[in-house]
Structure formats: structure tokens, C-alpha cells
Computed example of a mutant assay.
Amino acid sequence: MLSIVVPCYNEEESIPLFFKEVEKISGQIKQRVEYIFINDGSKDQTLDVLRALHKENPEKVRYISFSRNFGKEAGLYAGLKEAKGDFITVMDVDLQDPPELLPEMIEMVETSDLDCVGTRRVDREGEPAIRSFFARLFYKLVNRIGETEMVDGARDFRLMTRQMVDAILELSEYNRFSKGIFSWVGFKTEYLPYENRERIAGETSWSFWSLLSYSIDGIVNFSETPLNFASYVGAFSCIGSVIAMLVIIFRTLVKGDPTSGWPSLVCIFLFVGGLQLLCLGIIGKYIGKIFMETKRRPIYIVKETDADQK
């Protein structure tokens, strides 16, 4: 069986189009296909569309509806947890992930020792320039300071074996960053390149600031470098202040008491205070992650599933 995990948030227009396009290529797939749609607290008619789709295809379409919006990461985890297939793929419902690649991805896994076939965009055509710039900067930064390599342009769209998905599900952490988790668990992976595609319908729920916050979470979850940076800043500030005091003492002994300048002192105070706040913010980010983990809250809460309709 092939399980297709599809997180949805306000995607009432995209769902029927997505289902239709994937069904077109389902004849090229010898495995039986199941769809697992996750309604991530949508505010439109997404849930009604999923109910209707399940009613029309009860043996093929399954859905899970959250009690509120828990985020895409929770949706991915819920879908992977519910998937029963021997092969599992994750796809965006907006058709930015080409369904026609699925037969090739399945063949690559079946005819080799690969555990996963991922996809990556070779360009970012149609994407705002500032978003593309920061996306590339993120991958360069996280690969330089982190221990887990992340492929630039890699999508969540990938085909995984049952063994790899079971390994991912063992990581039940609350603060999730799937791209990093997919890489961290290991397993042999190859990537299929493809040209960027625009959404088929609807509007993206990812703003620049939400993507920036998501990127920061990715760095914090898979690197201790920011903490090391805070320590280095503190150490250099301390050493610099000692050197400055020695210079002032030496100059006072040689040339006498210099004229004091309060503007320079204010600038120094503000600079040091800013460094302290920066370091506290970095440490606080990690402490906040620890705090959320220790609460042991569920990653998501299910309000309704296809089982409720049987």
C-alpha cells in the first residue's frame, strides 16, 4: 500500500483538484493507494470537503480533523502516525509537489537499496526575492553551524519506506522541524530535482515572518551554535572590558586624567546592554523549548476522524 499524507489548512479549493490530479497517475502505481488528509483547524469549508470526499471514496480517503490549528508539523506527525502503507509519501495539497513524480520515486525505492526518495526545487521562480534570499541564507547557515545536513531546496514531498517512517515516529518531541528530523534519522536518500511550481488555487498561509520564525526554530532544534555564540560574546565582552580598563589606567598614569566624554560612555553602555539582551534572548529561546518539552503536552488533539462517520 502507498499512503499519501496531505496536511491541509484552509484548502477547500485545492483538495478536489489535488485528488483529481493524483488519481490520474494512480493507474501507474501498482500499490493500493490511501489518502490521509489532516485538517489543521481550517476556518473555511475544508472539513466539509473532506467529509464529502470520504463519503464518495470511503475505502480510499481518510481524514483527521484537529480541534484547532496546531501547525503543519503536527499535521505531518499525525498523518505519518495514521499511515498504514508499506510506502509513505508526504505532499502539499496545493500541487506544488508534482504527483507525476510518484511512479518514478516508487520505482527507485523498489529497484535499489534506497530508503527514501526526496524532491528538491532547482529554482525559486515566482517566489518573492527576499524570501528566496533568506531561504538560501538559512540553508547555508544551518549546514555550517548544525550537525544535520539539510539540502537546499528540499521539499517535504518525499517517498519513505515503512522502516524510515517508524524511526521518525520514535522522535515524539513537541518542538518539531521535519526537514531536520528526516535528515537526522539517517537512511539512504536521493533527491529528484524539479522546477518550481505555483499554487493551483488558494493562498499560502506562510508569511515571511512565519517562515522566519520557522527557520529560527530549525536552527535552535538542530544546533547548539547560538548558545556557544552567546558564551563567546560574554567572554569577549569580559576580556575587552579588562583590556579597556588597563588601557585607561595606563593612559591616566602616563598622561594624567583625560577629559571624560559621556556620549562615548552611553554608547558603550548601550552596546554592552544590547549584547547582554541578545545573549539572554538566545538562552531564553532554548529554555522556552525545554519548558514546552517538559510540559509533555500532546502534539495535536483530534476532534473528528473518518472513523466517526462510519
Rank of each mutant, 00 (worst) to 15 (best):
L211D: 08
D152N: 11
S3Y: 01
E127L: 10
Q309S: 13
M91P: 00
F37M: 01
L102M: 08
S183T: 08
L141A: 11
A52P: 04
P7S: 03
S207T: 03
P58W: 15
I283V: 11
I29M: 04
I216T: 03
E23C: 15
D97R: 02
Y139P: 12
L227E: 14
V247K: 10
R51M: 11
V185E: 04
E21M: 00
S3W: 00
V33E: 01
F250Y: 14
L76F: 07
N175Q: 08
L159F: 01
E34A: 00
F133V: 12
L275N: 15
G126C: 09
E127Y: 05
G180K: 07
R155Y: 11
S231A: 11
R176V: 08
I88G: 03
R144F: 08
Y191T: 03
K289Y: 15
P263D: 07
F66S: 08
I239Q: 15
K140P: 14
L47K: 12
F229S: 13
R136G: 11
T46V: 00
R136E: 13
I249T: 04
S14A: 14
V61D: 13
S260T: 06
T111Q: 09
I248G: 14
Q28N: 07
K285M: 15
Y300I: 00
E100F: 12
E13Q: 10
L17P: 10
M164T: 02
E56Y: 01
Y35C: 03
E34W: 07
I248K: 11
V117F: 01
P226G: 02
P263M: 07
V33D: 01
S215H: 14
E21D: 06
E82W: 15
L212Y: 10
G256V: 08
F70L: 02
A154S: 04
N221D: 14
Q45S: 08
G85P: 12
R162M: 10
R124S: 02
Q276W: 15
G118R: 03
A129H: 10
G256D: 07
K55C: 08
P7C: 05
D113R: 04
L76A: 06
I290D: 14
K140F: 12
F177Q: 09
W184I: 06
G274I: 01
Y174C: 06
